[in-house]
Design a protein around this nucleic acid. Structure first.
Lengths: 163, 163
DNA sequence: ATATATTTGGATGATATATATCCGTAATCA
DNA sequence: TGATTACGGATATATATCATCCAAATATAT
């Protein structure tokens, strides 16, 4: 069970967009340059974020992507679900209804106990993701990340928003 | 992010094996018949369980699969990791080290904060899976499942162990 | 108006992973 | 010896992920 690499990209993009000066936006070309990932494929993921309202877009010169709401109100769960969908990872195929022990459909009122246990664990995962906001990640990075890297990022950003 | 269907099969197999009389075993053909899944492919997953020690096997006539230890000491996490491996779902590709903000390798002592948050959520998922034992699932099923289905399962099992 | 920059969505291709089957070998039992 | 079974390797097929390209829509500036 591997998670799409696009999720990693999307989260990184959100943290970068959170550092963007008010009133400015970053086009996909610059986002892909910053993260060194394929531009067209990144664009697909950003479109998913856009549809989910996590980012807002404006077309045309000077346009691009910016956060759709304050970073305090964007959680990792929001991003994960925007990219990966909301379907549970564990898919119950109702094998209990097959084979020689199967009985009439009326006997299967509750979901399969195995599925319930798996889904319950997934719920715990989602709850944890929901606790972490983009703002928290940015704050954490401000503490931990090498000042040199932060400086480089800021000057790179200024090259965009200034020009 | 979809979970392998083999995990569902494996858990169902474990709960069935937990109901097996002491000293008996079920060959893969009967397990696949009971669950109505492809025999050869199920065999692959059972071999994974075997390598993990979750089930024990004996070859030859009368042989087959049985639990490798009491059902109280087999958790959903054990089964999931046996089938799916122990790799984290979220794979950090260190994109922070790429692009124009990258700095020297020495600056990246801690794992990326984004990865840590994702892994922390996964840990919560694993903890929940670890709380659920095969024995608990069997006990729950005994409460919930239609008595008719239980009866059918038992008589089907007797056809194997008796003959 | 025209040219430029940008997102959007559809179509398509490439690569990787999951699913499924087959076969030869080893082990076990009667 | 013969039957039964697990095991592991090889292979085939299906599905999902990854990636690219293009036409259309939209916005800005000149």
């Amino acid at each position: 069970m591997k998670m799409s690499e696009g999720i990693e990209w999307a989260i990184h993009c959100c943290t970068l967009l959170a550092a963007l000066p008010e009133g400015t936006a970053l086009p996909v070309g610059r986002l892909s340059e910053f993260h060194d990932v394929p531009k067209d494929y990144l664009a697909k993921h950003l479109q998913s974020l856009s549809r989910a309202g996590i980012v807002q877009t404006t077309r045309g010169p000077g346009g691009g992507y910016r956060l759709g709401r304050p970073a305090e109100r964007i959680t990792l769960l929001d991003v994960v679900e925007a990219i990966d969908g909301k379907d549970p990872c564990f898919q119950c195929t109702e094998i209990r209804r097959r084979g020689p022990s199967a009985v009439g459909a009326a006997a299967y009122k509750k979901p399969c106990g195995i599925a319930r246990a798996m889904w319950s664990a997934e719920a715990a995962w989602r709850r944890e993701l929901q606790k972490v906001t983009i703002a928290a990640l940015v704050a954490q990075a401000a503490e931990e990340v090498d000042p040199k890297q932060i400086e480089k990022s800021i000057s790179w950003l200024e090259r965009t928003t200034g020009g």
